[in-house]
Nucleic acid binder design. Structure first.
Length: 957
RNA sequence: GCCCGAAUGGCGGAACUGGUAGACGCGCACGACUCAAAAUCGUGUUCCUUCGGGAGUGAGAGUUCGAUUCUCUCUUCGGGCACCA
């Protein structure tokens, strides 16, 4: 027998697969289809590192097994090759990006092929190939024609030292990634895609797909749907209005001021009426200078400036309220203005405290359950304090504890008067000052002292006792209390004894936790809100929206965090945007796109609009794309009037090519369509898409958006492109660091395959740990996996006349386990089971050829080269990848004799071997007769004997 | 701050639906083969122990005959979002 020699074997089979097109998918077949997908790589100059093979191998194992289970599998690969690293390399070396890209792709291809992944190499796509980006441009034109692309003035990141516009990803900690220079915002007209029009679809589409939960949650958060209302506030002595978005229209009565973002257009419009405009302008300029980072980092203290001379009118009570400009309000969310409700919003509360603005409470926390025959009696409660202790009253007859509290005697009585009266009556103290307000509670409860149900709004106060002098308590029949002083925590414990959650308990809790009133930011019951009083938040919202809609000053509104997609890059190495601008048509308002006067799509027959050759790839001083430096390319004729016109010189972001590549794999060489309808119907959707967590928001969302759009215009068969989405963990260098060129800790798969072989690399990467978790690279681990493969190879020696019973049983159990594990991407435990199987066979005296080949088939998705070689050696001509996946026989897994563990009081004391089908009574009897069990029973009668079938007997004494 | 996820031997990790914790691999120790070493094969390997046992899955409580698994509180680490009105 020859030794296992992966280097020779692997080259041989890679050539065989290539020559025989073993993994080419069939566009029509009787077999069911299966379309697995991995994210295609960016072909960098650095080549592959060991992180790349993880998703490729994982899905390869799934794909290979599916083929053996009789599926027609399309497992494609390609290259996402537009983008900055190549462009930056071109700038540095002056070499054309296309040339560099071709080299990198060739290298990546060689490396990926050396791993034995069963990709269909006849369908490779390259996003920089004009035959491919012809259709990227075509899709963009469809978006343009359907009103989903528009040009808008947007701030871009401008590096002051490189003098170029940077993509967001190139800005690291507010500095330029390349030179470390300052980055500032500059406004530029940019093409935008209206992804926000698909916000609802992108959100609801998540309900029907099988994505890992994290990916769904991240997308949901990114889309950020919130339901609420828009409300108009009039400005006093002006025709102008301030419109706000709020998720809490129920708190409108508590809106005591308004805030505009520094960028809000109204500030300029109100200029003449603002008495302190110089101050306001100064504040706005300072806010503009702050970078995004500073604005969010300096969130410790809120700042703002009042627009003096301006008052807004709260539409629900016609109160005049002040208006501020403050940068804690974002121009990019909602309407860029808010109504501030300091009592029920943490940020507004903080701001109001600082600028001493009115805080009006309109929502009270709700306590208890609605009781029948409730009687409303509002009142106050006081946390009466003295030397750090608080006053508690003990009822002499029923032992109930309470705080000094009571209801109002007359409608005119205010809180202070009620406190004064009640504290005197119940405690005899008369000298005190109000130290703090603790908020309101809306409570339903049973008043034991008076035997009635009550419904009450209770306002809580911290009351500081100034003198300990007591007048006699004014006891009545029901109010018969002893005054006690307790530490606040003890008081809380005593109040808790009342069993019913009381407002008073909550006040002492707030007293301890907050020390003072902090506002209430949750849902509750409306107070101080006229027609909303007594309503719970949900009903109050609805009633307020109805009221606003009736008065025509507001309406129900849904708002999203998702923003439109900035689609322009002032860069060379991207798809040219195939649009033309005609000044003449624009000024004469002739034809063209409604939202974009003067802009026209080029004729489809002119696609692809190819990237021209240029001398230099640097962006220009003005931040224009390098394409603007080629007059002969820019100059063109207007598709509308035939006159002179200019091409758009911006290019697309590199998210564009990857937003639809899964469609092109289906029909990669089609020159007439991006893919044939027939083929799309056969292959779509992608059955299983695996990728990195870093792409769950942008790439996944963008590609879902494009696919949903293409579905809406009737050119793809499914709304959602991916049925299932999983994620792989990163592979880290030793020490848990990320692998990076600068740290010099990158492991190149070429070195690993040269030393150990591709099959060892593949199997090791799968064995490292759970597929979806990060794993540390450890060369020692490779040794163990190589030993395993050597052992499997050497098991040939065991081939003989028979397989013994134990080995047969293990084989069938492993078939079951491995099949199940692959379906669930539990590759690490699948490999462990295969190792157990090979250990088992090593120990056995012999194994039949048929059973040995079953072992080889089970290993084939992990170590395909070795499996093919062994398969060939034992007289089979067809590739093992065409063979049938082993099936297990449940009856062969069953054991005749099983080991039952016997526990006494939860501790294992013995075990017995019994026939598998032993009756419960019999096993219990046997267990109790065991010497060890008798010893631990110590003569006592067992209280209980539990039998868990096939597992254990538990004896309880 | 908010929302997720995790924590198990010297190390990576395993454990079905609550039922013998530590599968599998690495490392280590001993043994076989060898003049010797490597490779390979075999045996052992959670900790403590008076060898009867006892303790043990980040910490503390709870439910249970029985908890790595379920509930609550806390600690640490990782990830995502972050003034989103």
């Amino acid at each position: 027998m020859d030794k296992y020699n992966p280097q020779d074997i692997e080259k041989k089979w890679q050539k065989y697969w290539e020559d025989n097109k073993s993994f080419s998918a069939q566009d029509s077949s009787d077999k069911p289809k299966f379309y697995p997908l991995v994210e295609f790589p960016y072909p960098s100059g650095a080549g592959l590192h060991v992180g790349h093979p993880r998703p490729y191998t994982g899905m390869d194992i799934v794909a290979r097994k599916k083929r053996m289970e009789g599926f027609n599998v399309l497992y494609p690969i390609g290259f996402d090759a537009f983008g900055l690293p190549t462009e930056n390399y071109a700038i540095k070396t002056g070499r054309p990006p296309a040339e560099v890209t071709a080299e990198n792709i060739a290298n990546f291809t060689r490396q990926i092929k050396s791993l034995g992944i069963s990709f269909d190499w006849s369908r490779v796509v390259d996003t920089t190939d004009p035959k491919y980006y012809k259709w990227t441009q075509w899709i963009f034109l469809q978006l343009f024609k359907h009103g989903l692309a528009y040009k808008k003035n947007m701030p871009i990141n401008w590096c002051t030292s490189c003098k170029i516009g940077l993509a967001n990803e190139e800005v690291v900690d507010g500095k330029c990634e390349r030179c470390g220079g300052e980055v500032e915002k500059r406004d530029k007209y940019q093409w935008m895609l209206a992804i926000t029009k698909y916000a609802d679809k992108l959100l609801s589409g998540l309900e029907d797909v099988d994505y890992i939960e994290r990916a769904k949650v991240q997308q949901q958060n990114w889309i950020g749907k919130s339901e609420g209302a828009s409300v108009e506030f009039k400005i006093k002595n002006s025709e102008l209005k301030i419109t706000v978005f709020t998720t809490r229209p129920d708190t409108l009565f508590g809106a005591t001021y308004m805030v505009l973002s520094p960028e809000h257009v109204l500030v300029e419009k109100l200029k003449d009426k603002i008495n302190n405009f110089a101050d306001v302008e100064d504040y706005i300029n300072k806010a503009k200078l702050k970078s995004d980072l500073e604005r969010t980092e300096l969130q410790k203290e809120k700042t703002g400036v009042e627009l003096q001379g301006i008052k807004a009118i709260n539409p629900v009570n016609n109160e005049e309220i002040p208006v501020f400009v403050a940068d804690y309000v974002l121009s990019t969310y909602g309407t860029g203005a808010i109504m501030a409700v300091p009592a029920h919003d943490e940020r507004d509360f903080e701001f109001a405290k600082k600028y001493k603005l009115k805080i009006k409470e309109v929502v009270a926390r709700k306590i208890g359950e609605m009781l029948p025959n409730s009687r409303r009696r509002d009142g106050v409660a006081s946390v009466l304090e003295r030397e750090g202790k608080v006053c508690i009253l003990l009822h002499r007859d029923n032992g109930e504890y309470r705080l000094p509290a009571g209801g109002f005697d007359s409608p005119e009585e205010d809180d202070y008067a009620t406190l004064k009266r009640e504290i005197k009556e119940e405690t005899g103290y008369t000298q005190f000052t109000i130290a703090d307000f603790l908020g309101s509670i809306y409570a339903y409860y049973y008043a034991t002292t008076k035997s009635v149900n009550r419904e009450r709004i209770q306002r809580g106060y911290v009351v500081h006792l100034d003198s300990y002098e007591q007048v006699p308590q004014q006891l009545t029949k029901f109010e018969n209390y002893d005054v006690q002083w307790h530490e606040p925590e003890d008081a809380l414990a005593l109040l808790k004894q009342n069993e019913v959650e009381s407002g008073e308990y909550v006040f002492v809790e707030r007293y301890i936790e907050n020390k003072k009133y902090q506002g209430y930011y949750n849902v509750g019951v409306n107070v101080n809100s006229e027609f909303l009083n007594g309503l719970e938040t949900k009903e109050a919202k609805e009633k307020m929206i109805t009221w606003l809609e009736e008065k025509n000053i507001g309406k129900k509104q849904i708002n999203f965090k998702l923003r439109d997609w900035v689609f322009s890059r002032q860069r060379y190495w991207g798809e040219p945007i195939p649009l033309v601008y005609c000044e003449k048509c624009a000024s004469e308002n002739k034809g063209g796109n409604e939202q974009n006067p003067g802009w026209f799509a080029i004729a489809e027959s002119e696609l692809p609009l190819e990237l021209p050759q240029v001398e230099k790839y640097e962006p220009t001083d003005t931040g224009e794309s390098p394409l603007s430096q080629i007059p002969e390319w820019v100059k063109t004729t207007c598709p509308n009037c035939g006159g002179e016109a200019k091409r758009e010189t911006d290019t697309m972001p590199n998210w564009a090519g990857s937003s639809w590549y899964f469609l092109r794999y289906i029909d990669p060489n089609n020159d007439n369509e991006f893919a044939s309808q027939e083929k799309l119907k056969y292959w779509m959707s992608v059955d299983w898409y695996n990728g990195g967590m870093e792409h769950t928001v942008l790439h996944l969302l963008y590609s879902r958006f494009w696919n949903e759009f293409l579905y809406d215009i009737g050119v793809v068969p499914t709304s959602e492109p991916y049925k299932k989405r999983t994620s792989h963990g990163m592979i880290l260098a030793k020490g848990g660091e990320k692998m990076s060129k600068s740290k010099g800790n990158v492991v190149n798969p070429d070195d690993v395959t040269a030393e150990f072989g591709a099959d060892t690399l593949r199997t090791y990467i799968m064995f490292m740990g759970p597929f979806d978790q990060a794993a540390e690279w450890d060369t020692n681990g490779l040794v163990g996996v190589r030993r395993f493969l050597d052992r499997v190879w050497n098991l040939q020696e065991k081939i003989g006349e028979s397989t013994d019973g134990d080995t047969t049983r293990v084989l069938h159990a492993v078939i079951k386990k491995v099949t199940d594990d692959i379906d669930n991407m539990r590759f690490n435990t699948a490999v462990a089971k295969l190792m157990e199987l090979s250990n088992e066979v090593s120990k056995a005296s012999s194994i039949t050829k048929e059973d040995y080949l079953s072992v080889v088939k089970l290993i084939s998705p992990f170590a395909p080269h070795m499996a093919e070689e062994l398969w060939e050696m034992y007289g089979n001509s067809q590739s093992i990848s065409q063979e049938k996946w082993p099936e297990y026989d449940e009856t062969k897994i069953k054991e005749d004799t099983i080991t039952i563990v016997v526990q006494v009081n939860g501790k294992v004391r013995d075990s017995i071997d019994v026939p598998a089908e032993i009756p419960e009574e019999e096993i219990k009897k046997q267990a109790l007769e065991l010497e060890n069990v008798k010893k631990w029973l110590d003569g006592k009668e067992p209280k209980k004997v539990i039998y868990v079938k096939g597992r254990l007997v538990s004896v309880v004494v």
